[in-house]
Amino acid sequence: MSRYREIATAIEKDIIEKKYVDKLPEQFYLADKYHTSRVTIVHALKLLSQKHLIKTVKGHGTYILSKEIPNIFLNSGTSENDGFTKHINGSGVVSSHIISFQTRKPTHDEACALNISPKEQVYDIIRQRLLDNHSAKLEYTVMPVTRIPGLNRDILHRSIYSYIQDNLGLKIGKDDRIIAADKADAYDMQYLNCRSDDPVLCVKQNAYLEDGTPFEISESRNRYDRGVLTVNNS
């Protein structure tokens, strides 16, 4: 992993652990802390900005935009009352946990990808999947509120796609996917129990209704050693 990526991961971990609140320290402080140049720090901050964790305002500093994410304690006694739901498939017992669910305005790239106004609201969803009570996948999902109205936590615990088809009467069409290997970031280390040098399978997807209307941007980050990925080209 390149030096600036290592630093970005370290800063992201500090944000999650609330060592930095509201704002990051000045760039010269970070350069001194990580024994590197300000150019490397700029590259690291750019990565965090691309993940919508921070925003640099010229002349005012770098502000933290990350969501408040609670700690998750995984054990065999986890139940639906703890925010987990479970079902059984061919691979074992699959559990789902909602880490974060909120609405907000889209970023410029999200508005373009979803073909919506920057003033519209989108759902911002982070879910954790467990296989036999072991962390297996993180899912990040963004959907337009006006296009997929009525989402709530109960629906998220079941199936969003079933709700779209059965309750909203919309037909789901094709999707575009990009599949790539990546190094674990701070969220992966926190919620997938990855080590910093563990590989993660990253799947980015843009999904469309049958008429071609985009309704979802998503990214799933999968542990390399739990579960399999099946791609259906039909």
Rank of each mutant, 00 (worst) to 15 (best):
I88Q: 11
R5S: 09
K183N: 10
N167G: 02
F215T: 03
D82V: 10
A186N: 06
Y208N: 08
K183M: 14
T9E: 02
V39A: 12
I116E: 09
F84M: 03
H87A: 02
D185N: 14
K13T: 01
L209G: 08
P214A: 11
I16V: 14
N133S: 14
Y123R: 06
M189Q: 14
I7N: 04
D197W: 05
G169N: 02
K46A: 14
K119P: 00
Y208K: 01
E26T: 12
P70F: 06
D166G: 03
D154F: 03
P106V: 05
A180S: 15
Y63V: 05
S162T: 04
G77F: 12
S196T: 12
I99S: 02
T141L: 04
C194H: 09
V39S: 10
E80R: 10
P118A: 08
T36C: 15
V231C: 02
L209M: 07
I179S: 01
Y224W: 12
K19Y: 10
V228Q: 09
A8R: 01
V93L: 10
R158A: 05
N152D: 14
S234Q: 08
D182R: 11
R147A: 13
N71A: 10
E80V: 13
L47W: 05
E120N: 07
C112L: 07
I125A: 08
D22Y: 14
E6L: 02
Q102F: 01
V94H: 04
D154L: 12
E80G: 14
L229C: 09
I41H: 04
L114I: 08
P70H: 10
I155D: 07
G92I: 08
K183R: 10
D175P: 00
H43D: 09
Y20L: 03
L192I: 04
C202S: 05
R158G: 00
V228S: 14
L192G: 11
S79W: 03
Q128N: 12
S96D: 09
I172P: 02
L229E: 11
N133P: 09
P144T: 08
A111H: 08
D14N: 14
Y20M: 04
T40A: 09
A181P: 00
E120G: 00
Y163I: 05
R226L: 15
R5F: 04
K67C: 07
R104H: 05
N193H: 12
L156I: 00
P70Q: 14
N206S: 10
G150K: 09
N222V: 15
V21D: 12
K174Q: 05
I148V: 15
D154W: 02
T56I: 04
D185C: 08
H87I: 07
